[in-house]
Design a protein around this nucleic acid. Structure first.
Length: 581
RNA sequence: CGGGACGUAGCUCAGCCCGGUAGAGCACUUGGUUUGGGACCAAGACGUCGCAGGUUCAAAUCCUGUCGUCCCGACCA
């Protein structure tokens, strides 16, 4: 490929609306251009990278027994109503209306479509297991598209769906995908690692996310340095708070104390009250599936809403409004409590965090503005409907596996594998006949990779001050041949064309920078775009019988003209082998 | 949806507070000089100052509304 005959609009300056380095480099290297918020056009080089990532995914999916299909992006709403997600996922659904005024959705994911297919086509245990996958555009009405391709309204995803006859079979399918994902990200040159994950709206009971460590990521991962434990903070557990919950009884009944103007944990902890956060019970009011609930957390802990939803089985949870809270408890936020004697409506469920078990000598709101209760003992004074682990793990707490202190880091989620069970197969009648003639719903799993997000994650992880540093496996071109003189019959240009032909014949993707630009411009551009190897052909070196090999980020090496092709091929093969894992 | 910032040339931005002929650098066009790390000189072209109202003799500048972008939060298979 000649540079002059493709389209690589590089930018010297950083675009104003790109915040993170990978987004800036996507634009500066001429890989994408924004149409509007959350929607991007892929330019030739961006598209080449995308296709390479897709190809790696295809190879590994096929190797793991996946069968490629292509499903419609436009979907009828009835299957979404059948699965129940027309309601539960309505926040992300793009809905469209046709000329007959019938409603459709643009698929944010394809459990409904594939399960409908399976319902019709998979009727016997003899046909199982099956794992269908596709690489296709997804649409999600993200509230806030962000960071270029990281969170977009329209994006490319690889999604796969497994159907098994038995739970054990489903676990096997799950682990095949888990292993395939590990290989896929390694081949893309990404350091990604699996973590235990919450399943969210998609459902199911077992799940891992593949995370790329990055400060700009949108997820917090809790992990143990031993490598034996890692989980999304939404799911993470520990051996409990670093400081024990107070459990010594004062032997005194709850006592009302005036705390005028005190509406925060901090204010109550400060002078003149001096009630440390650890001695307080935080009372939160939520509306879970339209019903009010009280949630109790130790004052120095924070509620993990994902856990609340997972543990209570609630589908939609929101914080109650101030008015709702006053109606329910008779007091405003800041003075709320769950001490039974103060509750107007004892029927409201009270969910308490495990860390509050046996707590005594606690202080909590009196359900009367400006007053708190002290000497509260949870077992004696509160009626707890259910105890759950609802708190968010904090740095330094001990790992449940190794008892070492846990750490937390930011990460980008590039893949997610779920064991779904029979949630969708039951609702959409994807059943099969087993050997004994009985009918069962297929046991499903689903597996997603954000292809466009993966592309940006590679940039986020592989860059330096000069630009992108593509791993050879996904680089738009592997070698950038750079003649410093481009006159058609000049020696640099003639040798450049010959070398390009030789390398292409060896299956190496080459771009030849035939632009009539000064060397500095070409060097800067090739480094910005990030081609793994640049081959310089300048009259000075050629006069000495040498060609220059400059790996991106490495040191320049001179090789005899006659050896250049062989040297480049050897370099590329060695780099490629390094990424095969 | 709440909070904040910002919309001026293709890009990065100044001008706005204090109303009075729309600017710089880069990019682009032409000519010349250069030619191993984003060259230099000269000439040129490029704008309904996001949009709509309002105030005013006069609005990029002040006011109101609106649309859009980015960030934080909420939310997020």
């Amino acid at each position: 490929m000649l540079w002059s005959q493709t389209f690589i609009p590089t930018l010297k300056e950083t675009p104003a609306d790109a915040e993170i380095v990978s987004h800036q480099l996507l634009l500066r290297a001429g890989l994408v251009r924004k149409l509007t918020g959350g929607l991007y056009t892929f330019l030739p080089l961006g598209l080449k990278v995308l296709r390479k990532i897709e190809q790696i995914i295809r190879e590994e999916m096929n190797r793991a027994g996946g069968i490629e299909v292509l499903m419609p992006a436009l979907q009828p709403i009835d299957i979404w109503q059948q699965s129940g997600r027309y309601e539960t996922a309505s926040g992300v659904l793009f809905k469209v209306r046709d000329s007959a005024r019938k409603d459709w959705v643009l698929g944010p994911t394809h459990e409904e479509v594939i399960t409908s297919l399976a319902a019709n086509e998979l009727n016997s245990y003899r046909q199982l297991p099956k794992n269908f996958y596709q690489i296709q555009t997804k649409f999600r009405d993200e509230i806030r598209p962000r960071f270029g391709l990281m969170r977009a309204k329209e994006f490319l995803m690889k999604d796969a769906y497994s159907f098994d006859a038995t739970d054990a079979g489903a676990m096997t399918s799950y682990h095949k995908m888990y292993d395939a994902y590990t290989r896929i990200f390694a081949r893309c040159g990404l350091q990604a690692f699996p973590v235990e994950a919450d399943t969210g709206v998609i459902g199911g009971n077992y799940s891992h996310e593949f995370m790329v460590p990055a400060e700009t990521g949108e997820n917090d991962v809790v992990y143990c340095e031993s490598g034996k434990y890692a989980a999304n903070i939404e799911k993470a557990i520990s051996r409990g708070p670093a400081e024990a919950t107070p459990s010594e009884s004062t032997g005194v009944a709850p006592e009302k104390v005036a705390t005028p103007g005190v509406v925060t944990i901090e204010a109550l902890a400060a002078s003149p009250y001096g009630v440390s956060a650890r001695h307080q019970i935080k009372t939160l009011v939520f509306v879970a599936d339209s019903k009010p609930i009280l949630v109790l957390i130790r004052g120095d802990d924070s509620l993990n809403e994902a856990k609340l939803m997972a543990k209570t089985g609630a589908v939609q949870v929101r914080q109650a409004t101030a008015d709702e809270i006053v109606d329910l408890l008779g007091a405003r936020p800041g003075s709320l409590g769950a001490v039974s004697a103060t509750l107007k409506t004892p029927a409201v469920p009270v969910y308490a965090d495990e860390a509050l078990r046996g707590a005594r000598g606690m202080t909590t709101g009196a359900n009367e503005d400006g007053f708190h209760l002290r000497h509260v003992e949870v077992d004696r004074d509160l009626k707890v409907t259910a105890w759950y682990d609802l708190r968010t793990v904090k740095v330094g707490e001990l790992c449940v596996e190794t008892q070492q202190p846990l750490k937390i880091r930011r990460a980008i989620e590039v893949g997610h594998v779920f064991k779904l069970g029979t949630k969708y197969s039951e609702k959409l009648n994807a059943t099969f006949l087993s050997e004994d003639g009985s009918r069962h719903p297929a046991v499903m799993g689903c597996y997603g990779i954000g292809v466009t997000r993966t592309l940006q994650a590679v940039i986020e992880q592989c860059n330096d001050k000069d630009g992108i540093r593509w791993p050879v496996s996904v680089a738009p071109f592997t070698v950038c041949i750079t003649p410093l003189t481009v006159a058609p019959e000049s020696q640099p240009m003639t040798l450049a064309r010959e070398l390009a032909a030789t390398l292409e014949a060896a299956g190496i993707e080459v771009i030849l920078d035939d632009r009539d630009e000064r060397p500095g411009v070409k060097f800067k551009d090739s480094e910005l775009v990030g081609f793994p190897l640049r081959v310089n052909l300048g009259e000075k070196s050629l006069a000495k019988g040498e060609i220059e090999l400059k790996p991106r980020g490495g040191t320049m090496r001179m090789v005899p003209i006659a050896d250049a092709a062989a040297e480049v091929i050897a370099w590329v093969r060695a780099e490629s082998a390094r990424l095969q894992g």
